[in-house]
Write a protein that binds this DNA or RNA. Structure first.
Length: 463
RNA sequence: GGCGCGGUGGCAGAGUGGUUAUGCAGCGGACUGCAACUCCGUGUACGCCGGUUCGAUUCCGACCCGCGCCUCCA
């Protein structure tokens, strides 16, 4: 299979360091607020990567960190008047809830920065000993960017340009404007840890270097993250890690695309920032996931009401194919052309859009078989649809649960069943005016009826 | 200014040197008491200008437009 590597800017044949094993690290959240759609994109993108690699037979060890000490966390905790650990505990819980709803599998390890202070200190000391970092007079420790000739290899930036164009206010303690903090001296009253350079706390970049190499070794296969982490975060991680260990840090760098909202960049200043929980109040979680997966993970994606509504209609169609069918037992269904086609497109840098086209082809097969009355064939195709859906984290619900999930409407399932019965009676009496009145009444309340030979079934509108 | 990405049919969104993406929406038909679901059929594409080629949406160059990063940010 081939994966686009940000480092080389091209798709490369994927080769693991150790046969059959993939070691992957993804930069996770800084837990000072609820996760937003951009986080969801990264979460889902690498969830699909993990699921597909496992589907492909790889033993994937997935590590995603939590940054639980940081300026923003301390500031927010201060604003709230709470202990910072209360804030981070709460946000981590919320994050896990959001993830679960979106069908994101838990990573194998979820290291928290505050649990790795010793490793961080050890790495900083190594860097100082190697001449790659220095303790400044103010108690901070900085990485000396000029000590790493490869600096800029990921983001394709030249050090001269960075230094010349540095917008950062001149930090007198730094030897060069491009240098960045590995350790920050504590301000009075701030939470801090002991270090050889006095009380302080780790800089953001070093946390990821320390946690990733501790969990996965000096060199590992895949490192992923959001598009805006490419520089400086990931660039700095490479510098720190390679200077500290003397080895290549990562083979394949993967970056997800950005989220936009109604053609504008999603940002707090524009007021178009959506948290996952806000969105889940309006749309079923699986619809949000479908929306995210329906375009390539590297492309920029535009969040809008229209796009989500369309995702809902399309997912509805796929679930319709599965409705009223008990899929054949997975083990009884051999690999099909659809499975092969699915693997072919996913092998090409996780082309989920192409994979979804395969899902539609399978759904089409199911519908055909049902029309022709071939229940067994339909059941086998349904099994294929469910197993391929699983690789994308889709179509794993009972169709009825998907169609009838209570979205907080005024009608309960019982109310609806009663009205359907009343309509059935009216139809039997050929009172179609009354039957249609009931159906229209339900439609107004977001309930759609489907008549079939076996009777009438209902679903809640996805729009 | 530096680095990078992209412009595909009404919309969303893959892909390809010559042959169907796929989905949503639309239109016609079958099914239905009428619908819904489903099936069949159907239209509209590859920013602009050059070049390479027997042939380019697909490769090369210029141009126009949009976007991201360069500062904490997924």
């Amino acid at each position: 299979m081939r994966i686009y590597n940000t480092l080389t800017q091209q798709k490369e044949a994927f080769k693991t360091l150790e046969p059959g094993k993939v070691r992957m690290y993804v930069c996770g959240m800084t837990v000072y607020d609820y996760c937003h759609l951009g986080h969801a994109r990264v979460l889902v993108a690498f969830d699909v990567v993990t699921r597909y690699l496992r589907h492909r037979g790889y033993d994937v060890h997935y590590v995603r960190n939590i940054t639980d000490i940081d300026d923003k966390i301390l500031r927010r905790a201060d604003e709230n008047g709470e202990v910072y650990t209360d804030l981070t505990d709460r946000m981590i819980r919320a994050m896990h809830e959001d993830e679960a709803k979106l069908g994101v599998l838990s990573p194998n390890e979820e290291p928290r920065a505050t649990a790795f202070i010793d490793d961080i200190l050890a790495m900083i000391q190594k860097l100082i000993a190697g001449g790659h970092a220095y303790a400044a007079d103010n108690g901070d420790v900085y990485f000396a960017v000029e000590s790493f000739p490869d600096y800029g290899k990921l983001s394709k930036k030249k050090l001269e340009d960075l230094v010349a164009g540095a917008r950062v206010d001149v930090q007198e303690a730094k030897r060069s404007p491009a240098d960045f903090a590995l350790w920050k001296a504590a301000k009075p009253g701030e939470v801090s840890w002991q270090s050889p350079w006095g009380e302080g706390r780790p800089g953001w970049h070093i946390e990821c270097s320390a946690m990733s190499t501790k969990c996965l070794g000096d060199t590992f296969d895949i490192h992923g993250g959001g598009p805006d982490l490419l520089f400086p975060h990931h660039e700095n991680e490479i510098a720190q890690s390679e200077c500290a260990t003397g080895h290549t840090f990562v083979h394949t760098w993967m970056h997800a695309g950005a989220i936009r909202v109604n053609k504008e960049k999603m940002s707090k200043s524009l007021g178009n920032f959506f948290t996952i929980r806000e969105i889940l109040e309006k749309y079923p979680a699986e619809v949000v996931r479908y929306f995210l997966v329906s375009s390539h993970y590297r492309s920029q994606v535009d969040y809008s009401e229209d796009n989500l509504a369309e995702a809902g209609r399309t997912l509805t169609k796929l679930y319709h194919a599965l409705r009223g069918i008990v899929p054949a037992k997975e083990a009884d269904v051999a690999e099909t052309d659809h499975d092969r086609r699915f693997a072919e497109v996913m092998d090409d840098d996780f082309n989920t859009a192409g994979a979804i086209a395969v899902l539609h082809a399978v759904a089409n097969d199911i519908n055909h078989h049902r029309r022709e009355g071939d229940e067994e064939a339909a059941k086998r195709s349904a099994a294929v649809l469910v197993r391929l859906g699983a690789v994308l984290g889709l179509l794993q619900q009972d169709p009825e649960a998907f169609f009838q999930a209570d979205t907080g409407s005024e009608l309960t399932a019982q109310d609806i069943e009663a009205m359907i019965q009343a309509r059935a009676d009216a139809r039997k009496a050929k009172d179609f005016a009354e039957a249609d009145r009931i159906r229209d009444d339900l439609l107004e309340k977001g309930i759609i009826l489907d008549d079939s030979r076996e009777g009438t079934i209902w679903r809640r509108s996805q729009d």
